[in-house]
Nucleic acid binder design. Structure first.
Lengths: 207, 207
DNA sequence: AGTCAAAAATGATTCTAGTCATATTTAGCG
DNA sequence: CGCTAAATATGACTAGAATCATTTTTGACT
């Protein structure tokens, strides 16, 4: 027997809301699939709309621009990836080793599709849309908290959150060098390790 | 009396080449003006072509995309700005102070048009086009060298170029927070100062 | 000066992201 | 149940970036 409207509304946040969420999920799935198989540029918003079985204009009710769609698609995936990485903490003796283990696993994720990662990185820099900003903030916060915990756990450093911010900034720059400037990944990561060692352990001549 | 073709070609790198340079200059000037007055999005490539007195398609012989045009326009300006900043070195006692003086002056430049700066920053992350890559590399190198000199001059740090890279990465991240994530400029710069102090002077609990 | 191939310029055309006036669906209410 | 207003969906349409087949310019060589 079906529930009455009132009962239904009481259980879940309303049918309308559920429909929207379903539609949103279809859109994200379609976009994820097409971006992955055809690339971002050669996927048209029309193709995504067709695959998600919605009208041309409806798509833009859920993502203001094609680029927002890219961020939408990867926000979930990256959040999940970040959670998994921080949930299974690397059991290395040194803080620098542990940070590098985290960053290497993140880089592994991006290595799966460097073309998309490159474009995504570009969009993550600028949170033009309001919805995008919250997507990005959530992701950044998750990573920052994870890093902070690792650094705090090391115990040798004052002001762990600030150092976490610096570590993330250095990682971000490594990503830009690798994906943006086309430098060799290994080279970027080696440099990052040195920079992190400097950051954590100091770099004085007399040390 | 006019020079013969041969004489002319011997003096300068050929009339053809000079024409191209002139045309390029007209394009950059027109784009600079229109972007500044109307903003990037509401300036059409047609307007730029008209202002530069060239055909619609000719524009794309000089810049593969509208975004490349943005990079072209600001590469020169930013290089010049960077040179001026590093030519008149800040006479502060501390390395951190001197770095902050440099970064603050760079931020001042961007503060002149934060909308354009935001878009530019996004494009600088990814050197999609080959021509853009060289533009960006040149700019980055200039800044890196300047920072390196300041840090080396401080004398208390081993491996100045690496620390310069880190300092730049931290500055870059501050820019992203300010222009990209919409954080308050003062807050970003204060954080940057702390991070730089950490980087240069160490951050051990026992220090 | 005249010829020719390569380089550069051109604008009509194509393609697609994003808009907007209209139509449909939803849910609260008498 | 209708009725109504608000929310949501739709696809024909617009605007503008970028392309490309064609034309024009250049300069080397005779």
């Amino acid at each position: 027997m079906a529930l009455t409207d009132e009962q239904e509304a009481a259980v879940a946040p309303g049918r309308r809301e559920r429909n929207k969420l379903q539609k949103r999920a279809r859109i994200v799935a379609a976009a994820r699939d097409l971006f992955g198989r055809q690339g971002f540029a050669s996927t048209t918003t029309q193709q995504i709309a067709d695959a998600a079985d919605i009208g041309t204009g409806t798509l833009f009710l859920y993502a203001r621009t094609k680029e927002d769609l890219l961020v939408m698609v990867f926000r979930d995936e990256m959040l999940e990836t970040a959670r998994q990485i921080f949930a299974a903490p690397p059991a290395a003796p040194d803080v620098v080793d542990r940070l590098m283990a985290v960053f290497n696993r993140m880089a592994d994720y991006h290595a799966g599709d460097t073309d998309l990662a490159r474009l995504l990185l570009r969009e993550l820099v600028m949170s033009q849309t309001e919805s995008r900003r919250s997507d990005i903030d959530e992701l950044m916060d998750a990573i920052h908290d994870g890093l902070s915990a690792i650094i705090q756990d090391g115990g040798r450093v004052a002001n762990a959150p600030l150092v976490a911010r610096s570590a993330f900034a250095l990682y971000y720059f490594a990503l830009i060098s690798w994906l943006g400037a086309g430098q060799d990944r290994g080279w970027c990561m080696r440099l990052l390790r040195e920079q992190l060692a400097n950051l954590i352990n100091g770099n004085r001549v007399d040390a």
